[in-house]
Write a protein that binds this DNA or RNA. Sequence first.
DNA 1: GTTAGCACTCCTTTTGGATGAGTGCTAATA
DNA 2: TATTAGCACTCATCCAAAAGGAGTGCTAAC
Lengths: 342, 342
Amino acid sequence: MQLDERKKKILQAIIRNYLETGEPVGSRTISKYTDLNLSSATIRNEMADLEELGYIVQPHTSAGRIPSDQGYRLYVDTMLEEREKEVEEMKGMLLEREDKMEALLKQVVRVLAQSTNYATMISAPQIQRNKIKFIQLSRVDMGQILAVIVMEGNVIKNHVLHVPEGLDDETLLKLNMLLNTHLNGLPIEQINLGLIAALKQQAGIHEAIVGEVLDAVAEVIREADDLEIYTSGANNIFKYPELSDNVKASELIGAFEEKQALSALVQETLADESNTGIQVYIGNESPIQNMKDCSVVTATYELDEGMKGTIGIIGPKRMDYDKVIGTLKTLMHQLDDLYKRK
Amino acid sequence: MQLDERKKKILQAIIRNYLETGEPVGSRTISKYTDLNLSSATIRNEMADLEELGYIVQPHTSAGRIPSDQGYRLYVDTMLEEREKEVEEMKGMLLEREDKMEALLKQVVRVLAQSTNYATMISAPQIQRNKIKFIQLSRVDMGQILAVIVMEGNVIKNHVLHVPEGLDDETLLKLNMLLNTHLNGLPIEQINLGLIAALKQQAGIHEAIVGEVLDAVAEVIREADDLEIYTSGANNIFKYPELSDNVKASELIGAFEEKQALSALVQETLADESNTGIQVYIGNESPIQNMKDCSVVTATYELDEGMKGTIGIIGPKRMDYDKVIGTLKTLMHQLDDLYKRK
DNA sequence: GTTAGCACTCCTTTTGGATGAGTGCTAATA
DNA sequence: TATTAGCACTCATCCAAAAGGAGTGCTAAC
């Protein structure tokens, strides 16, 4: 037995209906609300087939059917026609371009949550920071100097050093020269023990300062790993009864608050270099165990300079995939525009 | 009628018992588990009085009694003996001093949530930033220069300026001189239109750069207003049935995610310059409407340099006030120690 | 191949009684 | 006068049984 056109249509009708109501859908409903002109009995036969094929399941005997993960998958993969509906209000809200990246991301994720009624997340773009552009030491006051480290991609790190013994301007200048002549433009892999030792030796009694600056550099690299994630609309899950029993809600909220858990999602999404940049994880497909009762739709966005980040929408399996994917696509375009205009 | 010693004891017993069980407590329970040696009938009479006085309420006829907000209030105000139990595990976890403020705060709030089983929040200390310490412009590459602004309290702001036409070293030096001679040590209130105009005039064709730098200064001030807040353990509320019905949970989670809502709490706490630095808001006393079914315990912490922030613990009204307040006190001491050692 | 009809399943809701915790009141007691 | 025992009463909770209803599978007829 295989999936003919009529079965597909029926499956699609079942899923559509279930997306709306969240209730198991029975044969009579399908018979009435499709243009197939088939009796409920025929639908029942077909539904039995669809169940055997694994696309739908019965929560219990004498209940209607609901889509299985496999059913959703087929729906998402093959039945989704393009949808380019403009998301006008979002356009409006994003229009005034925020200057700061953080504020922009927070705004995006909040608008997205509001307009979809699902929980949303966004990861800050991961920025290349493999080379040191330059380092500058400046006096803040007696006993304190400020080290500014600029990495590739204009990632900037400030670090205040305490110099109990004080430091005259000439020495400061010399240290600046020393650091910059050796480190400017240097990929961080090339900062090895030998180089560090050499620098420290040349710094003489101020080797501690050199050490601290290098530590700060190391920290920039470390920070690149644990990426910033913003979330919004976590409490939207309460709008879907199938997600809001105590146990599930607690797990989901926990995952959202402990943002580190979400990074698995980001990794997974960035790793997969597929087609449209939009991926759909249904139920157990999700990289995050706590979301096994949800569906997760992710998209990769890319600002200029090769900065990539991930947007995620988390909702019930009966998510309105059509709308979510449409919204994400529109959003991608707008982010593009926003940054092109910079 | 007034609150005599025996009534107080009975009230205390009722509250203690309710804190443990979360169930309404009846006269027989009190009669059995106190050393008053009174029959349940007598207790009933007393309870009727206590109810009339407003310290306890009956969820419905023929149910036991639970403390009213007023009852909790009395309990917290007068019955709480000091408790200095060491919170050993917290000490251990905080011991390795984190260098970065943000990481420290996140760790504190997480440990607190874990050890209390309530939801917790912490606000980053508000730092004095009224004077400019110094400003430095450095070349990043052709067409880009970096402005570093250091404010009082070592608050540092980086800002990258795009200079399409390029800029030679000499001009850069001159601009640096110009900015620093006029702005170093200047309280921001004194940066007025006249000064700005004068600076711009002296900068000549580079007045745009001066303008941008001043904008960046303005932004530092603005940032001081919307304070950073970290939260943890929001999903702990699911441990208390009286808070975890859909509506309440959703509201609470929302407040926690939309951290801006929590700032009301911070303002309120910092404003009140009372005794111990620890405040307890019960039910409707809370500054945040969404928390009207909770109790909120806040504490003000103060690191050196007059940096103040707020810690908050949000739980059910039947919170273990004793333990929470003890824990907060211990934590205050530890934060103190941690920063003294710096 | 499609459909009408029917028996059957099983979830959900309703109902009503039993249970029990707890109260308020009254009368007896110390 | 304060305390207590006793009793009628209330009301949430539990349980089982019944009713209702949505939906199915199967069979026989078209």
